[in-house]
Design a protein around this nucleic acid. Structure first.
Lengths: 194, 194
DNA sequence: ATTTTGAATAATGTTACATTATTCAAAATA
DNA sequence: TATTTTGAATAATGTAACATTATTCAAAAT
């Protein structure tokens, strides 16, 4: 009887799995995740890899100090802007103005042009309130089959569906059996130039 | 010398940390997360934190079974926990994000559609910094013959002039002898829906 | 020339342990 | 007696270590 093992295979240079060949093309670390949300997190990680998603990331609001600044209205005769002026509409704090329900609000950065007709451009940040229930024609943050997206919620005789605010994009119909959830209503948007 | 330790404390019933007293009020499991996205995931978990009770769970596509879509059943009860403050990198304060120079910044509410191609809509508020000097292609707040306007600063061989971001509007050339002044550079814009 | 094979290596999953935070009531103190 | 101090109990959280799986390569077998 020959007990010798097969002599194929064996050590050689260059063997082994290639770096970056994993799902995320990146090294990972272990993190504790609340048990019921492990599925959410995995969907979130996958969703932002897909190209259809116009959601880049979720941002947690933090409110430091109130910061009121004078607000003028646009078409005013010259002579100008002293804060004491008549044309000063009011003092305005951006956090106060844009955030209604602090506890249920978060931010999402937008990627791509799918909402330009609603004045939401690439790299804008939208403000999402999870405590508001969505109405037809609202802009909403939704997930469909594990992919997050910001779109307009519309409805026809067959039921609700999502629309981009850009004629180049097709409506997103919600197929029977697909996962669909509305995460919140977009209540505002901000943009920083340069 | 008395070597006896203190006799306080000690075993008793009911001692110990209470279940559910953690950040997520729930047990956790370790999950591997791509290193660069750990901040995102934590932010996502805090942003979209679910409270117990009647929240529809996010369902992963792979596990998905057909189910009827009930659009407006998604209600989030109040009692959203406040953010933990150790994720500074994914936290955002709108004032800080949008305002650079407090002393020289003010807001202007926009009337009309002359800037829609730049994503600035009627009733938006723009952030104007008086301390920045304007460059070509900047959006600026200017006054011409006694009227304020927000437009794009452009230039041809005859010199600078103003352009709306809307094809329906004509360029605004600055005539010899007319009053013209740039009051500041638009560094951001915000919008509130509804 | 083609197929089979096992070592090499990375990715991914899981367990175990270490550390930290919180709570309680007994013991110490006033 | 009322208040403060204290350490065990327990959960939460962080991390290292190990286990398992997937992928790749080229030597050996065919």
């Amino acid at each position: 009887m020959n007990n010798k093992k097969n002599q194929r295979g064996g050590a050689r240079k260059g063997a082994g799995r290639k770096k970056g060949s994993g799902l995320y093309a990146e090294s990972t670390k272990v993190v504790r995740i609340p048990t019921s949300r492990i599925g959410d997190v995995k969907s979130f990680l996958l969703s932002t890899k897909k190209t259809n998603s116009n959601v880049v990331n979720f941002i947690q609001p933090s409110v430091q100090k109130p910061f009121p600044i004078t607000l003028f209205s646009h078409k005013v005769p010259a002579g100008f802007p002293s804060p004491a002026d008549d044309h000063a509409e009011s003092q305005l704090d951006l956090n106060e103005y844009l955030i209604n329900q602090t506890e249920s609000t978060f931010f999402v950065r937008i990627k791509g042009d799918s909402m330009i007709d609603a004045g939401i451009l690439d790299n804008d940040i939208v403000i999402v309130d999870r405590s508001k229930s969505a109405a037809i024609n609202d802009i909403v943050l939704a997930s469909i089959d594990g992919e997050f997206t910001v779109k307009v919620l519309v409805k026809n005789n067959k039921g609700p569906y999502l629309m981009a605010a850009n004629k180049e994009f097709k409506p997103i119909h919600i197929e029977e059996g697909s996962q669909f959830e509305i995460w919140g209503v977009v209540t505002g948007s901000v943009r920083k130039f340069k």
